[in-house]
Design a protein around this nucleic acid. Structure first.
Lengths: 243, 243
DNA sequence: GTCAACTAGTCATATATATGAATTGTCTTG
DNA sequence: CAAGACAATTCATATATATGACTAGTTGAC
């Protein structure tokens, strides 16, 4: 008897199977952000489980930040707000509550390429699209980024019009390619500016550099992006919450 | 009618009030780690709520990492495992799976002191105890730490025997002073080694330095520790999970 | 004495139900 | 047409209950 679950291990509890099924639907783009998914009662009927079981499944996804409940209205998809990465890296106000400038993003390059060793290892493939960006605060370049995304997941990325890009990449990933970034791991280290990086950041070659390597994963925990970002070590700050 | 709740706002839902009450008991040291707290059925009777409500309250604390469920056995206190901070900061294997050395911890100083500005601001008091530690990997000093804790929460800290300290401080905080660290915020930046720091780390003054400032909070979200850790920027790595 | 079987206690899963609170759209009324 | 009353829908809280799974200790047979 089919119960409507996606094909997951039958030995697993119903709420787990339902959670996985909902995740698959989200990943497949069946629903769109800021649109309500079916109500708890509907889902209960559809999958032939009780409302309590639906709530438990949804609870998990809310905890992961994939869904958001709004009492009286419904439960909505929610693209994880990896917002304002730059704000995490550099302090935004001088010392007094100085007017915080808006971070800018300038795309320099977007082309198919061969992934460097580390990126290939993280992504599991060498066939990537390479993106180069320069991010600035009040016209001062602060972060130089090289980004690698697997070609198979982002077919046609290099031919997208420039208008498809805002200051953040992850919304574009989702809207045009259905790739939803759920989590990422950052690794901060110290280095020295190469000639090209120095030129972009308008510092001297050999100057101390803060380097952030990030691997981003989608809802199914498959790596979908590897990036290396560099900024002058002067004034650099990386904030992190641990628990 | 008393229902056994600690005095929290009566307008709040029962599961919130119960959760807060349980948190207070944990903070008060009513239970000890690795000891089971009363069973769900007992708690339900004690607070005159249903088992479902108890489960919902406990769910929250499990999510926060304060409690841990063991099916068939009970629910246990769990000091959050802020373990192996050093491992997060420096890579532990050379390049091949080299035998990972055990991090050592040498306490250099432990005395009442006046807090530096930043520590005082974070802790809300200048009356602190200052701790200085040097942390090493295979007899190579890698991290120099200055730690400040409020005197009022840690009465008698400076007179504790050295045997009361292991390689980690947080277990000692809890066992001797009932202070349970639940979360912390780290801030990584880069600077240059002062003469004293350089001496301790056996590097040259002016060498690039990685600096990690941490503020730690207890279960009630009150700041209980501020520390600044410095290590050579060469070979430094700070890992962070974001979502 | 040892080991297997049993048992009591505990958390895990699942259902059914009732009531409250918040939102949203509709309908009535002036 | 506008404003307020109203109703339907949806999530939020809470209870009661049943069954299964797992643990840890006890009992009993050999």
């Amino acid at each position: 008897m089919s119960t409507g679950f996606a094909t997951t291990d039958e030995r697993l509890p119903a709420y787990v199977r339902l959670r996985d099924t909902l995740t698959a639907r989200i990943a497949a783009g069946d629903w769109t952000p800021d649109q309500p998914i079916p109500s708890e009662a509907r889902l209960a009927r559809e999958f032939d489980v009780s409302v309590g079981t639906v709530r438990k499944a949804v609870d998990g996804l809310v905890g992961e930040g994939l869904l958001e409940r709004r009492q009286g209205s419904g439960t909505y998809m929610r693209a994880p707000s990896f917002n304002a990465t730059l704000f995490r890296f550099f302090p935004m106000r001088g010392s007094e509550g100085a007017p915080l400038s808006i971070p800018q993003s300038q795309m320099i390059l977007r082309t198919p390429a061969e992934a460097p060793t580390e990126a290939a290892a993280a992504l599991g493939t060498g066939e990537v699209i390479k993106i180069v960006r320069l991010r600035s605060l009040s016209d001062q370049p602060v972060l130089f980024e090289e980004i690698y995304i697997p070609r198979t997941r982002f077919v046609g990325f290099e031919t997208l019009p420039d208008t498809a890009f805002g200051p953040l990449l992850y919304p574009t990933y989702f809207e045009h390619f259905g790739v939803l970034v759920k989590r990422a791991t950052d690794e901060v280290s110290f280095g020295r500016a190469s000639v090209t990086v120095a030129q972009q950041l308008r510092i001297a070659a050999g100057d101390p550099l803060a380097v952030i390597c990030r691997t981003a994963f989608d809802v199914e925990d498959k790596p979908v992006e590897w990036r290396i970002a560099s900024g002058s070590a002067e004034g650099f700050r990386y904030r992190s919450e641990i628990s």
